[in-house]
Design a protein around this nucleic acid. Structure first.
Lengths: 338, 338
DNA sequence: GCCTGGCACTCTGCGCTGGTGAGTGCCAAC
DNA sequence: GTTGGCACTCACCAGCGCAGAGTGCCAGGC
């Protein structure tokens, strides 16, 4: 168990290192934080912290830098979330309020998050899985060709072509449209399969093939869209990463291009509350020297997607967490309004 | 006017420099290319080329590197477009054939282009301006709220909310839908404004306000979407850029985040044929040490959007141009089929 | 038992130096 | 117009020494 003062020393080390990006020594620590003890004492504490694995020396006779374990302790126990100031909150709200559609909301969110945190921002599009159907529209484009358009409560629109096994009249189409909407409008996506199960039975034999084709395309859309999309921004901030450039930045850029990796990264985060994954806690190897701060957001009380930032393990955790939390909150509001 | 041999020397310098990334000297040149003359002669030619501004020395007593002007001459006169090999063509086609929708086509194109050229790829979504309307759909979501969905021949879908000044019945909505589609379906976007001009007159006074609102939203959508979207990929290739990393890469990453800059960049390219902008020929300052190779692509004979790559001025122009041209051609085919 | 000042020790980082090699420009000769 | 020769100029690298920051340890004090 670490004494109170040793925790203070760790906190001071993290803060200084984040600020200066240089290993911090015992003398500098006592000068900048009034710990009430001498450098020699701090040195003893540092030795203890090093034994426990919270800090490390890059080389003998250099200052100390926090390890992943050290940051973990800092985030969990030693630092809170730094709330945004009122002007910042207003700026966030103003910026997001100007959005015209879902794409725009996501794009603005990414920009905002990247600017606020000065790191790389990642925003997942609201998932279809947890949202509800607002409307299903069917359009006849040719005698045996129907376009299916799906509109969600988050304003997302998906369309698919359906090739019909037999010609399908306008009357049947209108009938199907009406029946389909009365069953699924306002319902959750996960409920849709059972809700439409027996729908073909209400139609003439000749139309059943087409009805089934439409329904299976609809269900397919739901499943496929679980491969969710996301948007990233602020990659220019990677240049502030470190001095040993190409080696650090390359795998990060590669990871950012792999949507699968990123989705997994965000997905791993717990459903509620903010998640911070530090350095080697990230499963993906290329992100071993980065931390990911992520949180869910949604139009109601419920999270429909996640957003977050990727930055060096040496980041301002309280500030970043505050920004991420605030942005998620306001995006949720915007989505609920529209 | 430069003699034939001097042009050969310039070509050799460009080829060697692109390959080795190091300034090339007179001796190395004669060894690797059989020019049939001695190093001393080549030195004289180099001095002449330097006087004309086609090559430069990083420092006294170093080899020569091509200037932007030198690359320009190389691209215009000394090198052709290197065609893709048959296996490469097959690979391109196979890769693009798997796409399920427009987003997927664009996403695959970006990946492909980035991989082929090992540079940063930029692909513009097919523009609405030149495409035609496939269908306009109107959905009543609430008594005084209508959703407008616009479907284009390139498979793109845009939706907008319309707040109606007065409640609007299902009958009127169906009427408007029918009239609207009969007028604009299959027509070019640029023609739409005049085609719908007198539409409100066909409706009762009480509905005219809503009809006008719908129409103006439709026209707005056309205009707004001229701010076209684009997708980029292969940013990890920036790490192969140069040795003086942060300084070179930062402005490029920043430029890539500015969609406006990129759209302008692609837009500046001529409508037909391939465009190569080298170094300082790019208006945007951050891209002064990069070259942009771009070309239009489209579903018919006509270009509906552009795609291209951004790379260091020291790039393999013939190869890059070949890849860009081939990809544009196949994407056009895919779009025409769907 | 914990804190403190002192001291010797260990590295990194920096600037200086000299040597090497690649490449050039010029010139005189062919 | 081409060629070989020659002196000259730098960039690059390795080796050296020095200064500075930081540490670990120890003996003494509260």
């Amino acid at each position: 168990m670490l004494s109170e003062r040793r925790l203070q020393v760790l906190r001071a080390i993290v803060q200084d290192y984040v600020g200066t990006e240089e290993p911090v020594g015992s003398k500098a620590l006592t000068e900048r934080h009034n710990l009430g003890v001498s450098p020699a004492t701090v040195r003893n504490d540092m030795a203890a912290l090093e034994d426990e694995g919270f800090i490390a020396q890059p080389h003998t006779s250099a200052g100390r830098i926090p390890t992943d374990k050290g940051y973990r302790l800092f985030v969990d126990k030693l630092a809170g979330v730094k709330p945004m100031t009122p002007p910042e909150r207003r700026a966030i709200q103003n910026f997001l309020d100007g959005a015209v559609d879902l794409d725009d909301v996501v794009a603005r969110t990414v920009r905002l998050l990247a600017q606020l945190t000065r790191q790389v921002a990642v925003v997942q599009y609201p998932s279809l899985t947890r949202s509800t159907v607002r409307h299903v529209e069917l359009l006849s484009l040719a005698p045996a060709r129907v376009m299916l358009v799906l509109i969600t409560d988050t304003g997302r629109v998906e369309q698919r072509m359906v090739d019909c096994p037999a010609p399908f009249g306008e009357g049947s189409l209108a009938d199907l449209r009406a029946r389909l909407n009365s069953r699924v409008a306002g319902r959750r996506f996960t409920d849709v399969p059972t809700l439409v199960e027996d729908l073909p039975e209400a139609f003439d034999m000749e139309d059943r093939g087409t009805v089934s084709a439409v329904l299976s395309t609809l269900l397919e859309t739901l499943v496929e869209e679980n491969e969710e999309r996301l948007m990233i921004g602020g990659t220019a901030n990677l240049t502030r990463f470190g001095h040993d450039f190409p080696l650090t930045i390359r795998p990060v850029l590669e990871a950012l291009e792999e949507q699968v990796v990123l989705l997994k990264l965000l997905g791993e985060a717990g459903d509620s509350g903010m998640t911070v994954r530090i350095g080697h806690e990230n499963a993906y190897e290329g992100l071993n020297s980065t931390s990911v701060v992520s949180v869910g957001y949604g139009s109601g009380g419920e999270a429909v997607a996640k957003l977050g930032v990727v930055g060096p393990t040496r980041m301002d955790y309280p500030g970043t967490m505050g920004a991420v939390r605030a942005v998620a909150r306001y995006v949720g509001q915007i989505l609920a309004e529209s």
